[in-house]
Design a protein around this nucleic acid. Structure first.
Length: 305
DNA sequence: GGGACGTAACCGATGAAACG
DNA sequence: CGTTTCATCGGTTACGTCCC
């Protein structure tokens, strides 16, 4: 059993490594080609077809049919616009509008033009220096750190998005260093005044969990309470990102599997819209998340699922 | 040895979305 | 609307591997 497994692994490894070797050599050839006779891109495209059609023997030479391109096809203008649009979520757009509204309101209240989008960075920076400390909530209290940072980011998003597409970053550009100093100072002042206390949520107490089960809201014999329990189990086992994307989950979002010791478990079968595997944080690639059966336990999550 | 390249680790900034 | 929470992003640095 063990020997077979090892053989299989070695075989797989050999397959993989030979594959990547192939890719490497093709790539190396591809790189050395254009260096000899650099050609404008457009001519290259046109030259390609006739060459292949007229002289197929050429293909036998070490430089095979103009290799597979290193990159994807040139995207259309619409495509890149669409991608740029998909950058932010609807709720973020709302936040953007909120921040812009605040800044616009302040500008008009102080007899400035509210068309700040075209302002030069130095002027904009100057305005922001005075804007930030003028900020207060509708109730007249100071904004929290999160709010201040959010407002700044909102204005920055607004400027860098269509139709303005400005090439600025309110958080990082040197031009905005002084206004950012003002914000940092405000945040520090808040901190010193003890106003930046963030309250963390407490975990659900063990006793409360008991009560959930004993109260009947997790009973598996009626649809509504069964759903309660299954959802609780899902949140407990898979809920690593708050409520993000929950409404897009379906039956096929989960798959039933067995591990090498014959224990049944469910795991998520998708990773599309959630960005889980795009980043390379260690804890993300560490292991897939599994919801294991608890055989003998009347509250087994796999059974109720 | 050292340069090129790809990836991992790190960590503050950013954004999504919930709550009150 | 204002705030909070937390996962992801994104920029930077460190590290490993290959090749000269």
């Amino acid at each position: 059993m063990f020997a077979r497994l090892t053989d299989a692994t070695i075989y797989q490894f050999e397959q993989e490594s030979s594959q990547s070797d192939d890719e490497l050599s093709t790539f190396a050839e591809g790189v050395s080609e254009p260096v000899e006779e650099p050609q404008p891109r457009l001519e290259l495209e046109q030259a390609l077809e006739p060459e292949q059609a007229l002289e197929p023997e050429l293909a036998l030479e070490p430089e095979p049919p103009l290799k597979k391109p290193r990159f994807k096809e040139m995207p259309s203008r619409e495509h890149i616009d669409m991608l740029a649009q998909a950058r932010v979520e609807e709720t973020t757009k709302q936040q953007t509008d909120w921040g812009v509204r605040l800044f616009r309101g302040w500008l008009t209240e102080n007899q400035y033009s509210d068309k700040f989008e075209e302002l030069e960075s130095s002027i904009l920076n100057e305005r922001l220096c005075f804007f930030y400390p003028s900020l207060q909530t509708k109730k007249g209290t100071d904004y929290s750190k999160s709010a201040l940072v959010g407002i700044r980011a909102a204005i920055s998003r607004h400027l860098t998005s269509p139709p303005y597409n400005r090439n600025v970053n309110l958080m990082k550009d040197n031009a905005f260093m002084t206004s950012n100093h003002v914000i940092t100072g405000m945040i520090k002042t808040l901190k010193r005044a003890g106003k930046d206390v963030t309250v963390h949520k407490k975990p659900v107490a063990e006793g409360d969990i008991q009560r959930l089960y004993s109260s009947g809201v997790f009973n598996t014999d009626s649809p509504a309470t069964l759903q309660n329990k299954v959802f609780w189990d899902l949140m407990l086992n898979f809920g690593r990102r708050g409520q993000e994307g929950l409404n897009s989950l379906t039956k096929s979002s989960f798959g039933k599997f067995k591990d090498d010791r014959d224990h049944t478990y469910y795991k998520m079968t998708y990773n599309e819209a959630n960005k889980t595997h795009h980043g390379v944080d260690s804890h993300e690639n560490r292991q897939e998340v599994r919801m294991y059966e608890k055989s003998g336990d009347e509250n087994c999550p796999v059974a109720s699922f």
